[in-house]
């Protein structure tokens, strides 16, 4: 495989990791006030992502940094074109991050501000990333709206399923109900959104789109049957397949009029980056995976004090 192809795939992989991991972070952030009826439960919901969300966000930083290094013209073109939406994504990520870190440290009177920040700051990027990529691919406002609604509801579903998997008690029951409710919105938006992504694209993109639909259907059925682990696997797979379809459709022209080859850095840079990535990424995956292992237990109502 050519190095430009390799790096396009690496960047697709990094965005996929970001959407799978932050997908549930966003869903959890949006749903926390709904699933947690009192302060303890609210904390219980957010604790499911507490140790990991910041590491998950680094997938975005790495994806964007890799775009900058490997496809400077794509990086520059995309973020200057979607200027104001990206500003709003950043505003969302800022208020979410600060809200998550500070909510347990501020006085109770100010905690509502942090909770608002977490909720709005999760919702904004959940909607906007879908809208930005749909617009990038299809170049229409309607596509952006549809893509945004799809990614927004998919994050809700994915987050709700994650909470059923990671908690117990009343929160878990409510998360299941929320997942079923979210799945209505997901199903309504998935068909047109995925058809839009796949329209006029090659067969593998169609296949990914259809498989994503199947994974979503399976996910909803598994939520219904209370198979939390499998349901989470299904929603995660749906995100993987959707992102694969998206990047498949973006190949080989990630921006209108700009091919991957035109956007790419020179072979020297791509070569050294490949070595660095190949050496470092396994370690990153290993220690991030280990983090999930350390915090594998379901989160109870009882806050943990050391």
């Amino acid at each position: 495989m050519e190095l430009t192809t390799v790096w396009f795939v690496v960047i697709a992989f990094l965005w996929t990791g970001y959407f799978v991991l932050e997908g549930f972070d966003f869903g959890v952030g949006m749903l926390a006030p709904v699933l947690g009826r009192d302060e303890e439960e609210h904390g219980q919901v957010l604790e499911t992502i507490g140790p990991v969300w910041d590491g998950n966000e680094v997938w975005l930083i790495t994806a964007v940094g890799s775009m900058f290094a490997a496809f400077p013209a794509w990086y520059a073109g995309m973020f200057s074109e979607f200027y104001l939406p990206v500003v709003l994504v950043l505003v969302g990520l800022i208020i979410r991050g600060v809200g998550l870190e500070w909510r347990s440290k501020v006085s109770p009177a100010r905690r509502a501000w942090c909770d608002l920040g977490v909720m709005a700051g999760s919702g904004l990027p959940a909607f906007l990333w879908g809208a930005i990529f749909a617009d990038l691919l299809l170049g229409s406002g309607l596509a952006a709206l549809l893509g945004g609604l799809f990614s927004f509801s998919l994050c809700l579903l994915h987050g709700a399923v994650f909470v059923t998997l990671k908690t117990e008690g009343p929160v878990r029951r409510r998360a299941r109900t929320a997942a079923l409710a979210a799945s209505v919105a997901v199903v309504a938006t998935a068909a047109p959104a995925l058809a839009g992504v796949a329209q006029g694209a090659a067969t593998p993109v169609w296949a990914c789109g259809l498989a994503a639909m199947a994974a979503l259907a399976a996910g909803v059925a598994l939520v219904w049957r209370r198979r939390d682990g499998w349901a989470f696997t299904a929603t995660a797979s749906a995100i993987v397949l959707t992102t694969a379809a998206l990047f498949g459709a973006l190949w080989p022209e990630p921006m209108p009029g700009l091919t991957v080859a035109q956007a790419a850095s020179g072979p020297y840079t791509l070569g050294v980056l490949t070595w660095i990535g190949a050496l470092a990424l396994p370690f990153v995956l290993a220690y991030q995976g280990w983090t999930y292992w350390v915090f594998r237990k379901r989160v109870t109502r009882e806050p943990v004090h050391a």
Partner: peptide
């Protein structure tokens, strides 16, 4: 860099982007 300085980013990305990608991969994670 991409949002406000797209000409800069396109000009330097091949060199300047590499340490940024390494920063994310080797340090931020």
């Amino acid at each position: 860099f991409g949002m406000n300085w797209s000409e800069y980013s396109t000009f330097v990305g091949d060199v300047f982007g590499a340490p940024l990608a390494m920063e994310a991969l080797l340090a931020f994670f």
